[in-house]
Amino acid sequence: MKAINRRQAFALGGGFVMLTLMPMAADAEVTGDAAKWIETFTGGKLPVKGKISLDLPEIAENGNTVPLSVNIESPMTADSYVKEVMILADGNPNAGVATLMFTPLSGKAEASIRIRLATTQNVVAVAKMSDGSLFTEQKTVKVTIGGCGG
């Protein structure tokens, strides 16, 4: 077997880079405080990914006011609607951001608020439907200037 040439060496190196980057590309686990908040909210049940669209800027220059929109797919009728949506920021000193409570009268399970983010972190939304099913979605926001200034 002959020694690997330059081209192959590059290909191999590239492969390694891909491998090491892979776990970071996958969804990061929700950590610490936020995990506790989720557990209290869901009662220990595991939320499924989907149904929620979470709209946040990828890069927030000012962490003091970051626009957040959340929209959950639901017919919003008396039999089937979104009851509650909890928004969490896992890198803030206090992970809780807001809990939005909808009713069939809301018509749409959609809301916008402006939030504070201390550092670059994951923002998580967990939705509880009227039938008890749970959904989740998360997004990473890069923050240039933190919003918890001391």
């Binding site: 409570m101 909808f102 009713t103 916008s112 608020i113 402006r114």
Partner: peptide, 26 residues
């Protein structure tokens, strides 16, 4: 709306100053 709840939310300190809230109603 006419005494019936439409929307409500519990807010934490992570809400920006001068809270802006946008939602829908049927």
């Amino acid at each position: 709306f006419n005494g019936k709840p439409v929307f409500s939310c519990a807010l934490e300190p992570a809400i920006s100053a001068n809270p802006y809230i946008q939602f829908d109603a049927r």
